[in-house]
Amino acid sequence: MAADPETVIEASAEALARSTAARTLAALAAAQDARPLAHLVVTGGSILENVLSEMQSSPERDSVDWSRVALWWGDERFVASDSDDRNDKVAFAKFFSHVPLAEPNIHRMPSTDGPWGEDVAAGVAAYAGELAAAASDGEDVPRFDVVLLGVGPDGHCASLFPGAPGVYETEPAVIAVHDSPKPPPTRTSLTFRGLGAANEMWVIVAGAGKADAVKAALGGADRAQIPSAGARGRVHTLWLLDEAAASGLTH
């Protein structure tokens, strides 16, 4: 049964980024103590970029054997691989180009200049195949150790937007997103089921502009209208907030 969320509130966005970076490194190191490979899912957004920057400068960075980390994306913009719109380009610039990941463990979502060209459905099918190949126990998604998930002011998470078709998907683990309300219009995204394969789901939010979304999501909103309300981990769900993002909550 998916875990009910807990909240952790830090004094500032900077403190939030530092503590989340430390928490992520510790979780990956602990996962590697238990299993050969740790699975990490990242998404986009400014606070998550700051978390990656803090991981890069952390003295605990090398406590993780990066050759035994499988890196996945929760969502991506379906554009060329060298586009500045790509979440993976920013993530590598901020952190992942500085650690010795093993190439077979890097699972980028499809790009328009990849093997499937402009056929986003074929790219999604290939990504679903990668997920299934990394899974065990008859499942089609690996049990991610940690998902780092951001939230938009409208409450969206990954590329699951309020009222859009993706929030109603229950079968596939990964989907194509068309007509995104934020550019670019075509994206790929894990679904609630795909994201929910995580043992640890961490929703990381900073800024007063997202306080209403945080209040709604943690107040029991329908995930079709506030998608981040549907973010749940198998074992643990944490909302990691700065004081501004938590300002609408009743303590």
Rank of each mutant, 00 (worst) to 15 (best):
E6R: 14
G248C: 07
H236F: 13
S58C: 10
P183I: 05
A21K: 02
W72M: 09
P165I: 00
D88S: 13
W72L: 10
A224S: 15
K210F: 12
V151R: 05
D119M: 07
F78H: 07
A164R: 06
A80F: 05
G152N: 06
V141K: 03
A102F: 01
T112F: 00
W66E: 09
A221S: 15
E60D: 15
A246F: 02
V99A: 06
A229T: 15
S228W: 03
D137T: 05
N199C: 07
A198H: 11
A26W: 12
A198F: 11
E200N: 14
L190Q: 10
A216G: 11
G196I: 02
P185L: 08
A70R: 08
I175Q: 00
V205Q: 12
V235Q: 10
E10Q: 14
P184R: 08
D154Q: 04
R86A: 03
A213N: 15
A173P: 03
V90A: 14
L160E: 00
A244Y: 05
A211P: 13
D212C: 08
S19F: 04
F95L: 13
D212N: 14
A128S: 15
P59T: 12
T188C: 13
A26I: 11
D82G: 04
R68M: 06
D137L: 06
A102K: 03
V64C: 10
R187P: 00
G123H: 12
H107M: 02
F95D: 02
A217P: 14
A15I: 01
G220W: 13
